[in-house]
Amino acid sequence: MMLSDADIGALWLTLRLATTVTILLLIIGTPIAWWLSKTSSPFKGPVAAIVALPLVLPPTVLGFYLLIAMGPNGFIGELTQSLGLGTLPFTFWGLVFASVIYSMPFVVQPLHNAMEAIGERPLEVAATLRATPFDRFFTIVLPLAKPGFITASILGFAHTVGEFGVILMIGGNIPDETRVVSVQVYDHVESLEYAQAHSLSALLVIFSFVVLLALYATQRKTSNVGMMK
């Protein structure tokens, strides 16, 4: 294995990005998944569709629109500028924002499935024992949906590590800021440095295999709750 400082920098950045995105997605995705599993609102369909949209859209479409929307004349760009944050493209937090959108379905869907599988009965029983909605969520939903949370975290993390198209479109290839592993591999291949490309790529293949292995191991242990549909 021959990894340069730039390669290691890219690896660290990728891990930092994936961790940040996973934590944010669990915070944002949990209430969305909970709402989706409980609501009978007419907005359920549209919200579920919007959450799932990145599964279908090519990353180039998402990246292109994010570049425009986050730019100085886009609606997100105008919002961030009025908040005094400047514009998001070419920054770490721009990548975080884009990745949260891009990896959202990989976190929300397992959570949604796990929460739906719990059903009404345990919650109704708890309610008769005077558990507040707050109590019920933390003492019943969270423990019972644990396999779903594990699946969601692994998938959200792994999908962010594997992200390429969107980051290429909005990143600007800045070392230690937006140059993640996938972009670094691309750079190596494009500049004919195939040996370095091999080292990093092999590392990613091994990583992905281990992650999926861990995912299927946890799923085997814990019934089929939280399996992706």
């Binding site: 100085p72 600007g172 290839n173 800045i174």
Partner: peptide
């Protein structure tokens, strides 16, 4: 202040969308 496009077409895109 550098932002790098993967090729000259993407560099154009960064300026065209006024992000740079």
């Amino acid at each position: 202040k550098w932002v790098r496009g993967e090729n000259i077409a993407q560099t154009y895109q960064f300026v065209r969308t006024e992000n740079a």
